[in-house]
Amino acid sequence: MPPPPTVTAPPAERAPTKPGNSGGRRRQRLRLREAGLGWLLLLPSVVVFALFVFWPLGRTLYLSVYGNDIFGAPSAYVGAAHYQEMLSAEFGRVLATTALFTLFSVLPAVAGALVVVLLLEARIRGVRVLRTAFALPFAFSVATASVVFAVIYNPAIGVANGLLGAFGIDRVNWLTDPSIALPAVCAATVWMNFGYNVLVLSAGVAAIPPEVVEAARLDGATGWRLASRITVPLLSPQLFFLVVVSTIHALQSFGQIHILTKGGPDQATTTLVYSIYEKAFAFGSADFGAASAQAVVLLVIMLACTAVQFGILERRVHYR
């Protein structure tokens, strides 16, 4: 929808601008107008980023070294106290849970999607239908997928226990047994990410030049050899992208934990982001100082991940 052209380019722009012809002063004025227009166009985004990214970034650091009253208002400077609190077994467990959750929600989803996409490359009928079917989880939001899994995991009437029962296995408390809850939430997360991974890897496979595959086939490469020597190496940019993006995504996961386990049982599924939420917002808690210190830890971890992405992506991955 083009806005009215009344706010259009400055009239001076319409004058012929042969370089070196008109005076330097005139060109300077044109440049100034161009820069003015440029900054006007950037202004909305700059304001949003300044108010809701950069200012809060500084304020998170500020809050992390201040105590707060029960309403969350900053009170006294406490230095590194909130950071020292994090040198505890409790927070160590939060970090370990975060690492386990990340590892076991990212790797199975990427590896599984890779296997499926490679198998879809075999010359079989119905590939298109199958590919769409495998991508379907992508249509689910974290909340809707989590709710479906909550129903499936229901200890009394859920399908998961119904299935076990059919094989004569005792019921499992999927979300309330401390040793099962984290794997159960990971499994649900793998499902949520599966469709996305299939979409990205399928696009990567589609971008491989058919001549390359054809040449390999003529040389007698089939099945496993074709996959391991040709397809997977050519998919390495997508695979690397998926691992990094899914890791970043997993570190930020919140909805499935909030819906399925609320961080429990006994903190077994309290990841870093959930811990921030609990300290700052859950049950009327407003411990913004301690939560902000944990938010800084999250920020540092994420920046490290992004640095890895930029550092390795440029050099190590096979690009076409």
Binding site: L42, S45, V46, F49, L51, F52, V53, F54, W55, P56, L57, R59, T60, L63, G72, I248, L251, Q252, F254, V273, I276, A280, F281, F288, A291, S292, A295, V296, L298, L299, M302, L303, T306
Partner: peptide, 24 residues
């Protein structure tokens, strides 16, 4: 430099700045 600042916003996880944003 401004473009760099734009890209930098992609590296900041929303969850790490959600508290001040909520306060604002």
């Amino acid at each position: 430099a401004t473009f760099g600042l734009f890209l930098a916003t992609l590296m900041v996880p929303w969850e790490s700045i959600i508290i001040p944003n909520y306060l604002t």
